[in-house]
Write a protein that binds this DNA or RNA. Structure first.
Lengths: 248, 248
DNA sequence: GCCGTAGGATTGTCGGACAATTCGTCCATT
DNA sequence: AATGGACGAATTGTCCGACAATCCTACGGC
């Protein structure tokens, strides 16, 4: 007979304020680009103290719904960028027992279909961006950090070409987590840059022809190469990924 | 000759405190399960006011690194759960122009390889959880909300069987976003439940046999059915997804 | 019309206060 | 030795108020 009693825990005010604001943003009462009212005004409207409002604001800020535009005082409503979101994902993955092998497996799953889809939907503008990214990688012969950055950018431009936000967002954390090990690999495996450049070229050409099967096939090789290179570099793929991003 | 001057913007104290704490968590100085020191103590250590500390705490709390255990006062260090992370992703996707078609496409990409991988790695325990989830769905003939919940749970158990956090995390937002439209579909398409139950059974059997190809094949059909059902129900797949999750 | 400036508005941070809850410990009871 | 209060200490949630630093704006000068 003992009914399961719902635990009664009225939410603290800062959370109610955050929820209320988030609702206003999601239902577009507050639209993207709008500047938020001043804290004192919000405090007045919600009938709480300004400190309480500020706690709520920090919450929304860290989930990427509010942003302070550089050189501006007021907060503005914004859509969370893939980068911000992926940062949270990357941290979460780094805290769980995620290995480079896991990341690589996910790349294997995601990237070939992404390449395929990109081959079907890419526009002229996409192709230009893809070519530019490949070009930048090919031109960067010194700085490994930059090279790695350009590799990630290449994948991103392909993701954009799919026009599917879900896929773009899904691949972003992989790119973030891949960077450190990719950098190590490029430094230790001499032929790595050339192999990457070749794969990028073949993928790019396939995308230009709209050849989905070929784009997929080369993407598969490209991703497989990452693992090969990883092993050649003596990196252990079952090591846990790590991720830091605080200083800026 | 004009050197690119780095914009000097010393971060506000609440952000520095948040960064410092986040670093301590990521480098495991503060370990999972540890209770955080009291706010006054943190304020003393960082030499800032307690309000400032509280703003930092809200930030970490919303990124899922700190949690208040039910019926507890102190905050505890924790790993962000897939659910929490995916919530942020879902919101982000809902704010961009993400359509149900996008979600469905991502399901098409992700789920078959997940099923394949699960077929290779599943343990006895996984199989039991998968069977239990399928059982719960089959037994739920009334409440559409519950049925939908069980469908998502079925996918989650399969994701767990892959033992790959990245894949698990990638599929979570899809499940969250799928729920509303899936609920509508189940309510409007009479044969939907039966088709889902059949697919679940075939997938489960394939997983039990460790038959990766068959698991993949049935998962493909299963996901395709979602779209068919969607269309049969007269739901427009190019509508934007929406996501709310505030009350609790 | 463009530009600089003064005053107003807004944020970042602080000091302090107090009620409500939870924590921890000590003691009585079974 | 477990169990179950009892109670003061510790901690959080919320508020009030204050002030410097910075951003914003509107006004007046060129």
């Amino acid at each position: 007979m003992s009914a399961e009693l719902a635990p009664i825990r009225s939410k603290p005010a800062y959370r109610r304020v955050a929820d209320a604001l988030r609702d206003r943003i999601l239902d577009r009462t507050l639209r993207e680009g709008d500047r938020l009212p001043p804290e004192t005004e919000l405090a007045r409207q919600f009938d709480v103290h300004r400190s309480t409002v500020r706690e709520a604001l920090r919450e929304l800020q860290s989930s990427g719904l509010l942003i302070r535009r550089p050189g501006s005082k007021r907060l503005a409503v914004t859509r969370p960028t893939p980068g911000i979101i992926a940062q949270g994902i990357s941290r979460a993955l780094a805290m769980h027992e995620t290995t480079y092998l896991d990341v690589w497996e996910a790349l294997t799953v995601l990237e070939p279909p992404i390449a395929e889809s990109a081959a079907r939907r890419r526009t002229r503008a996409n192709l230009e961006r893809i070519a530019a990214a490949a070009q930048r990688f090919a031109a960067e012969n010194a700085d490994a950090d930059l090279a790695v950055h350009h590799v990630a950018a290449f994948f991103r431009t392909i993701g954009e070409a799919t026009r599917n936000r879900v896929l773009m967002l899904a691949q972003e954390p992989l790119l973030q987590l891949l960077e450190p090990s990719l950098r190590a690999m490029i430094n230790r495996v001499p032929q790595a840059r050339a192999r990457i450049a070749t794969a990028q070229r073949r993928i790019r050409e396939a995308l230009e022809r709209g050849d989905a099967a070929e784009a997929r096939a080369w993407m598969i090789r490209h991703v497989r190469d990452f693992r090969r290179g990883h092993e050649l570099a003596g990196l252990v793929t079952t090591h846990r990924v790590h991720f830091r991003r605080a200083a800026e």
